[in-house]
């Protein structure tokens, strides 16, 4: 149940900026980009209007998931410095509006996908929204430090949905792209969790650094970075992509592993500024953007 905040009887209508912030626009940008890459890398061509509508549906679905996540976690967000300024914990929006907005947006996104693409993509979009809200947000996140590992599947759906929207079916390449984001999520989030560890501890969220400690988290970052690198390069030797993607994946993944070694093998003192962790976190975002860009570039201009 949402840990709702109390509001005055005569609350102000929600400002559109707060509703927009509820959709986690920064997360949405990565979702839109990876979905677009999945759609553009698919064989055949899609009418531009249908392609735009499918990507819009995925973006709205991601926004709905973000809104429902913030509705459910309002109480926890209020305890963390990083999230205390969000519309719900800051008291600028009432929980019921957020819930209605999230449910309405989710329903509309699925309807739009069904209308613009096909039922297979609409089903996948529904599954990804339900997985993020019920499995990740409500079930895994408050209970287990493996929340990010399993919950990462929710963020891995967009390229698969983009591909299915374009073709109506699943193929090995989008499944490998799904696997890539799935394995990328733990090192990405644990790098962040290492430098905002006290925030998660204060909110009582069992993130890996809080439960298993720093050194175990660092080892696991390195472990996941290694298997992620293998998954990132795999489409090339398996013949699903060409050399352009292959070399990009090799070089970028090597740098990812190097940065993870830095994070994975060091010990920190009291006043550590966590620069390697911040660097890995920032690089991991660029890594995914460039790698997915390379998937499309490779499809259009094979070497």
């Amino acid at each position: 149940m949402a840990q709702s905040l109390t509001h005055g009887e005569m609350s102000l209508p929600a400002d559109w900026r707060d509703l927009f912030a509820l959709t986690k626009p920064r997360v949405m940008s990565l979702v839109v980009f990876t979905a677009l890459c999945g759609l553009l890398a698919a064989p055949g061509s899609v009418h531009p209007v249908l392609a735009f509508s499918s990507i819009l549906a995925i973006a709205l679905g991601a926004g709905a998931s973000g809104a429902l996540n913030q509705w459910y976690e309002a109480g926890l967000d209020a305890k963390m410095k990083r999230t205390a300024g969000r519309p719900l914990p800051a008291g600028r929006l009432d929980p019921q509006t957020a819930l209605h907005f999230g449910v309405g947006l989710a329903a509309f996104s699925v309807f739009l996908m069904l209308f613009a693409a096909n039922w297979q993509a609409a089903v996948l979009l529904t599954v990804s929204i339900l997985f993020y809200v019920f499995v990740y947000t409500m079930w895994l996140k408050p209970r287990t430090p493996q929340n990010i590992v399993i919950g990462g599947a929710a963020g891995a759906f967009p390229p698969l949905i983009g591909w299915v929207a374009a073709t109506g079916g699943v193929a090995p390449l989008p499944v490998l792209l799904f696997l890539l984001i799935f394995l990328w999520t733990p090192p990405h989030f644990w790098a962040l969790a290492l430098f905002v560890r006290s925030d998660y501890a204060a909110a009582g969220i069992p993130m890996m650094p809080v439960v298993a400690g720093e050194s175990s988290t660092r080892r696991q970052i390195l472990f996941y970075a290694l298997i992620m690198a293998a998954a990132a390069i795999a489409p090339w030797p398996l013949g699903y992509t060409g050399a352009l993607y292959g070399w990009t994946a090799v070089l970028l993944s090597a740098l990812f592993v190097l940065l993870s070694i830095q994070v994975g093998t060091r010990r920190t003192g009291e006043d550590d500024r966590m620069q390697p962790e911040k660097r890995l976190f920032a690089y991991s975002i660029a890594y995914l953007f460039i790698l997915f860009g390379a998937v499309v570039a490779d499809h259009w201009w094979p070497l």
Partner: peptide, 22 residues
């Protein structure tokens, strides 16, 4: 125990109008 902020009708109308336009 739960003092409420004075109701600002101008802000209420402004937000209502901005949402209706959007």
């Amino acid at each position: 125990e739960n003092p409420q902020k004075p109701f600002d009708e101008a802000e209420y109308r402004r937000r209502q109008r901005s949402r209706a336009n959007l």
